[in-house]
Design a protein around this nucleic acid. Structure first.
Lengths: 108, 108
DNA sequence: CTAAGGTGCAACCGTCTGGTTGCACTAGTA
DNA sequence: TACTAGTGCAACCAGACGGTTGCACCTTAG
């Protein structure tokens, strides 16, 4: 994979625990590794690794705050990944129409 | 990962070769493993594995045609993956606005 | 100062993954 | 029939991955 931004995003989102972290981070604004570990069936260190992966994918940013490190989303790369999907999806298209209609619903 | 449709899609799209296969399959309608292998720096068997992965993710379907097996896209699951992205993305939002405008451009 | 909560780093382990090679099988073709 | 192109299957390998444990290092509360 190495230097492949889109690939890193997809790879980061491929893990269910990582997706859960992203979801939680989307609801509340920030969270720490230990907080997240409490809601997941894995160790705090495992979560830390996941956060590191998300960070390397550019999806998350860390900020030290006293004795804890809080993480927050940085959604730029996610849009890029979606961009890849839409541009490829535009080629064969018929299904994509349904998708577009679906997106419209969220923004009347 | 096991039984995780969304995860399998993201995982399938995480590999650059696999994404290239999807891209090619989006341009021309169908292709065989050997055809694809000719345009990639890997063996035919490697491509076959990638196609198997894409197939398991539900992104691709195979059809035997005489002595060759042609593959074609089945874009349903891709929309599901995008759905996950949009529904999560909707939470924090500001960046998502730019994305929506971007999508609108493709469909005036 | 001391104790405790929160991190980070490193080693280790089993498993999955992308890739290869080798071989056997099927289907058209000369 | 004999040849050739296209597949499929299996074994194998090195490296990455998700996860764990153990420990040392700050930072705040008593």
């Amino acid at each position: 994979m190495s230097e492949d931004p889109t690939g890193r995003v997809f790879d980061a989102l491929a893990d269910a625990n990582r997706r859960y972290v992203v979801q939680v981070l989307a609801e509340r604004d920030t969270a720490t590794a230990t907080e997240l570990a409490a809601e997941l069936p894995v160790t705090r260190q495992a979560v830390a690794k996941h956060l590191a992966a998300l960070n390397e994918a550019g999806l998350v940013a860390s900020r030290r705050e006293g004795r804890e490190t809080r993480y927050a989303l940085t959604p730029g790369p996610l849009a890029e990944a979606m961009d890849w999907m839409t541009s490829v999806g535009a080629e064969w298209d018929s299904r994509l129409d349904a998708l577009r209609r679906h997106l419209r619903k969220r923004r009347p």
